[in-house]
Nucleic acid binder design. Structure first.
Lengths: 181, 181
DNA sequence: GGTAAATAGTTAGGCAGCTAACCATAAACA
DNA sequence: TGTTTATGGTTAGCTGCCTAACTATTTACC
């Protein structure tokens, strides 16, 4: 799901110019933000073009990967609510994702006999086989994408992104302008 | 449009473990990639919660910003194809975006008398007023989000993201596995 | 034990992204 | 000049994302 992507980011001088009109615009913050968006988006596109060859999308892929990981530790089943939480989407979205995955035979959905509100989603053999077919190229592309960065640069990038993650997680879910404080 | 987001990224030891099963998995590349995705996604969410208060989405916002920028230099009008290219979406998507923007009175659409295939999209006064209402808080949030990073760290981050951008732009649009070469 | 609150899952309606196909017009070229 | 090709815009149909509202079940609490 590539997001909207500005092809040419504004040059720094333009940001400086715009800052005269909008005193709240901090050019270096804006520049960093736009680069981050573009970087994330382009990376997703590179990976998605691989997934698309197997008729699968980023969203479906994430669900399959979560199930695969949980297989190792737990019983191999998860409820839609847990999946939604792990994947960072709404429960309604997860219902739709599971619908298409089930339709294509990649997961199964069965009612939980203990808690009768719950459904148990499980990766099928077909789903696992699909992942094993996709993953080698998937990981190759990751390596290719990151190949211009040295190990040190990768660590640096992760640290910087972690700082942003820390900050974003502080964001008050509701209060709108309180963020500016 | 927040993309799908893994809430808890796998720990590095898990990546090392998984690399035993998938020899193509390069743990540091994978870790960097996942952090990048999460960082971009979280940042978008912070900004979008502001736009949503004004009943606008990231996609619509981008179109308005492109028009605002072009106003300064050009005649203030752009065709859907140019907009789509600048925003990095398909022409069909842009048609839909302009539809809703026009419905809400934020842009106008008029046929070009010279090239009769073209439409000319123009920002309305209402659209401009909306931007002027949104932008201060928009820029405040950018600054808030980036506030944990020093100027030097921002420069570093931009440089690293630029390297990824260079690499991603090298990506062959069609050939699937040639990327691994 | 019985009512209220919380939780799991789904459904409905809307927007945004995509591809593929289509029509109108313009440009290229024989 | 006339045909072919390219371009601009739209439409149709799909997926995926959201919120809000709904049902069923479980839990909490009086």
């Amino acid at each position: 799901m590539p997001n909207l992507l500005l092809k040419d980011l504004p040059r720094y001088e333009c940001l400086l110019e715009a800052a005269k009109e909008f005193p709240d615009l901090e050019p270096s913050a804006c520049e960093t933000f736009l680069h981050l968006l573009r970087g994330g988006d382009e990376s997703v596109r590179v990976m998605e073009s691989n997934l698309a060859r197997h008729n699968i999308t980023q969203g479906r892929f994430s669900v399959l990967m979560i199930l695969l990981n949980r297989c190792r530790s737990n019983s191999g089943t998860l409820g839609p609510a847990e999946l939604a939480d792990a994947a960072g989407v709404s429960r309604a979205t997860m219902t739709g994702l599971i619908d298409t995955l089930e339709r294509d035979g990649l997961v199964t959905r069965a009612p939980d006999t203990v808690d009768r509100r719950m459904m148990l989603v499980r990766l099928t053999d077909k789903g696992r086989a699909l992942l094993e077919e996709i993953l080698p190229e998937h990981f190759k592309r990751m390596s290719w994408l990151m190949s211009p960065l040295s190990e040190f640069e990768r660590q640096t990038l992760v640290q910087l992104l972690n700082k942003l993650h820390q900050q974003a997680s502080k964001f008050p879910a509701e209060s709108p302008s309180a963020a500016a404080v």
